[in-house]
Design a protein around this nucleic acid. Structure first.
Lengths: 204, 204
DNA sequence: TCCTCTTGATTGAACGTTCAATCAAGAGTA
DNA sequence: TACTCTTGATTGAACGTTCAATCAAGAGGA
């Protein structure tokens, strides 16, 4: 049993997260990370991690539970009416990706997931599952007559996309932050717009 | 043989686009690009370009006219009712970013714009301008009583985001392509949903 | 037709640097 | 002593870039 100091390990991971999100995986050097972590020698990193890629993998590993956290207790959400479920979903989304941590994660994910192929598969699986779940939920609500019939695959992406735009504006295209509303306000408006847009039309 | 290629420059750029979009700027090597372009020596690239970064800059330079192409004749669009303008906008967006070229561009932009700081500024300017224009348009339509009052900055991002989700699904998270609707169909649904969601509410 | 000179394009070899990874030697502790 | 952690020095490979040499093709005389 090798008893690696867990705090030192985390310290290195925190530094790596920061450096990766700023320079990208390929441009970030072990030296950069060591300096950011306040280590006197880059060699120490190799006591806790076998190589540079494992740093990336360890960071992105946390993305799976984070993503799943967005869809808390899907069973419960599945039964609620759209007003409740969509708002819950939007708020989870904002809570997770609205933080600096979430933003850094997203940036690393967008830029460097290709450098961790085995994780790409995992995360892809989670994403697909979530989208499928959400589509199924929308279909259910349509069947119940609570939403108007349409292609649920598209509808799911439209809703998620409207939320994604907020995170992209605040964390990726940081020059679009100007004039950006509060995450809560934005989430409410996104939900409201989508919900109204999906209402069954009594007229015509 | 050796038909005095004046298109050699473009041939190199095409190869660079492909390699950059696949491996990212930092991980792509001059050798990779030379091989992709069918050159016998990487040195030849330096006859046409001063350095590796200039390849990236030359590629991303094309992004400015491409982006502006999305907002064709803003004056005309500005005057039309939402049904027309939003549909035009959505279709331009899809036309530009729905192609493989647009997808590759987007991926390079997302991953590697940081490696071309002088361009980041340019593109940021264009993006901001487009968002501002669109917000102003929405405000105008609200004032005209054609859309319900709301925060137009958020509304603009919500609409663009719903379109962005399509491109992200098809070109970035390629594992989400499955079940993806036709771009035309998707655009129509996105516009319809947003439009209905922004309608003035006569009831209540 | 033959020869010379010029120009743009192309090549393989090499240079200097960077970087991930390794190593051997310790420091601190139990 | 034995084990965990830490360090500066070192290694070997890969990379961007440079460079002298070469090639192919044309221009202009004689």
């Amino acid at each position: 049993m090798t008893e690696n100091d867990p705090s030192r390990r985390q310290q290195i991971l925190d530094a790596a997260l920061k450096v990766f999100s700023h320079k990208g995986f390929a441009s970030a050097t072990i030296k950069d990370i060591a300096k950011e972590a306040g280590l006197k020698s880059p060699a120490l990193i190799y006591w806790y991690f076998p190589n540079k890629q494992e740093l990336l993998v360890s960071i992105l590993m946390e993305l799976v539970p984070i993503l799943q956290q967005v869809a808390t207790s899907p069973q419960t959400l599945m039964e609620q009416p759209p007003e409740e479920t969509l708002m819950m979903l939007a708020q989870s989304f904002m809570k997770v990706f609205g933080t600096p941590l979430g933003g850094q994660m997203l940036r690393i994910f967008l830029s460097d997931i290709g450098h961790a192929p085995e994780l790409e598969e995992r995360v892809a699986g989670v994403q697909k599952m979530m989208l499928t779940f959400f589509s199924a939920y929308l279909q259910r609500q349509i069947d119940l007559g609570r939403l108007r019939p349409c292609d649920t695959q598209s509808a799911a992406r439209i809703f998620i996309g409207s939320l994604l735009a907020y995170v992209m504006s605040s964390e990726v295209f940081h020059w679009l932050r100007e004039g950006l509303a509060d995450p809560q306000i934005y989430a409410r408006q996104a939900v409201e717009t989508f919900l109204e847009g999906m209402r069954v039309r009594s007229d015509e």
